[in-house]
Design a protein around this nucleic acid. Structure first.
Lengths: 338, 338
DNA sequence: TATCTTTTAAGGTGGTTTTTTTCATGAAAA
DNA sequence: TTTTCATGAAAAAAACCACCTTAAAAGATA
């Protein structure tokens, strides 16, 4: 069996293709009799217009390219879920690609999709790209008429819409939260030094200290780049020589590592040491004790990003105004804080 | 700026469209001089043939529709990653959709993509569909020329290729593994009763007991449907009235719950109670103690499924032979077993 | 004139849209 | 009463989207 086309219907009913097309669109110049006849036959044969033909004619695909650095990441999956739902509700499909944190792959993906397959991009920049600072594939894409909305990992060097977590204030709030519990020596643990989010969270940490009149002490800071998973332990262990009573970590795994080491050293959590982590994912919910987290609302971020892009696509105003939207964060209190 | 088309190049170089097309395809009837001229210009303008036009002409899109029941699932993300990589390596794109475990959504997705947007489907059946046993949307899809390769959650009522975990033997192996450690009263905990994988794992559990000459005791079995996350605790607690010394669980969360309850009741893990869980995900790696798991190799499953579908698509033999492939499992030993 | 190279033109993919054609009806003119 | 012509509805044809393929035509050379 094969798909029914307009031509098939036309031939079967002995009318012209254009008559069929018009009848199916309820255009009044087709007589009711003919229209009903055609519509019934089309329904019976389960006719669906060919998407490629439509895309060709309309110069729009109603598809969105999504580039995600890494699929094995709970936050990005939440974002993706948000994107998918929002897109589907507007009749858009998404093409999901993984850059695998690689600049080269990112370039290839954009190249591959910039062939009339999609109308625009939703993406988070790969680590490699953020580190080497080469963004021309993005700017070119925008120039060639493929709007981009960046989420989470963005760059100030690309003119486009951006949806990000308000990491700076989230981080400062986390500090304040710990201070309220009586913490005075708050450590900062981050393996995301080179990422924009890593920088912002570090800035927020410093801002939070300042707001609470606590002196910044660099010996309480571990700010580095992604390391081998196994190394968290040796990386974090020295912190405990400095009588810390609070930790803010930028990812779940390092928070868990820290908690393990703390327990080993006889700390009670949260009594002796309070821990707040970024990235409210699976681990935080199931750790022991369960982690208090900065929740970043990935699904909302995805939905907002998709909505923004679709808005851009549906209104063809060439007014090139770009905005950056902040997604609010919450602190989800669990058992690692008092 | 807009995308360059063949026509644009032809006009710019004052030749005909077909000359350009031939030149770009290195067809020998075009003079070298002309060819070089055209190829250089095309490269300069970053010409890419329009995918929609190609798809229309070739009646194939080199795109694969992927339907995943649930994105916030580590295993499926591994599968998706495997699919994406394998597809990309063959020049295929994937369109990812989430059925959200809903039959209706599944139907809509298939309907939406069966319009010349994709060449075939890779999918895992949603819970609702598996429960209500309505598979006509799948069989219709196959009939209309969209091959399906199912992974993980499959149905014997649909004739198509299938890639599944060898859940039955994996489960039996897990039993044997526990028995070797001296376990005699092995409990089975599953919230996946209505899914094919749930049934197979239960069968495997019984087979494993039989192989090891242990009598089946239904009071050691909790086999139910997905329940509210919070209910694991009350569901599992009664098990501990039966002097169990081993647990096989079909998902991570219930294993974690069981371990918590065990610790509460004074059990030492793994000395007094050994635990093996299916679904080697994030939680297993980060729990305390870390979970020994049946590893299902999601990425391999995804890659194998994608490869199989692409093979089917590229060889247009109408020999309708379908096969079911089993992905081997490993037991990844961590700290919850001896 | 025959042969070879290069270019042009046509046709097809599935759909939408604009333009033309067809045909019936009715009014005006013969 | 018959012929002519305008009117308008209904349907068909044709153009277009971007690309590919192939047959035909043109041009150049021997």
């Amino acid at each position: 069996m094969k798909k029914t086309t307009l031509k098939d219907i036309a031939k079967a009913l002995n009318v012209s293709v254009s008559t069929v097309s018009k009848a199916l669109h309820d255009i009044p110049e087709i007589s009711e009799e003919t229209r009903i006849l055609i519509q019934n036959y089309a329904k019976e044969k389960n006719y669906r217009p060919n998407y490629n033909a439509l895309s060709l004619k309309n110069k729009r695909t109603k598809s969105i390219g999504v580039i995600i650095p890494n699929m094995l990441n709970y936050f990005y999956m939440q974002v993706l879920q948000g994107i998918e739902k929002e897109a589907a509700s507007h009749g858009y499909r998404i093409m999901t690609c993984i850059s695998n944190e690689s600049y080269q792959k990112e370039v290839e993906i954009i190249d591959m999709l910039s062939t009339g397959s999609i109308d625009g991009f939703l993406l988070a920049i790969s680590k490699e790209t953020e580190e080497n600072g080469e963004f021309s594939h993005f700017t070119d894409s925008v120039k060639f008429g493929f709007p981009i909305v960046m989420f989470d990992r963005v760059s100030e060097h690309v003119e486009c819409d951006k949806i990000i977590t308000d990491d700076l204030n989230a981080s400062a709030d986390a500090v304040s939260n710990l201070v309220k519990q009586g913490c005075k020596r708050i450590a900062f643990v981050s393996p995301l030094k080179n990422l924009s989010i890593g920088r912002l969270r570090f800035e927020g940490y410093k801002k939070g200290l300042e707001q609470n009149n606590i002196a910044f002490d660099s010996s309480l800071v571990i700010n580095t780049n992604e390391v081998n998973y196994k190394n968290y332990d040796t990386m974090i262990r020295p912190l405990f020589d400095h009588k810390i009573d609070g930790i803010i970590s930028t990812n779940e795994s390092s928070a868990l590592s820290a908690m393990e080491i703390a327990k080993e050293n006889g700390y009670n959590i949260p009594e002796d040491l309070a821990v707040i982590s970024f990235a409210n994912g699976l681990l935080a919910r199931n750790s022991n004790p369960r982690l208090t987290c900065v929740s970043q609302h990935g699904e909302i971020m995805g939905a907002v990003a998709a909505k923004k892009l679709i808005e851009k696509l549906e209104t063809k105003d060439d007014a090139k105004s770009y905005s950056t939207e902040y997604i609010e964060t919450d602190i989800v209190v669990r058992d690692s804080t008092r």
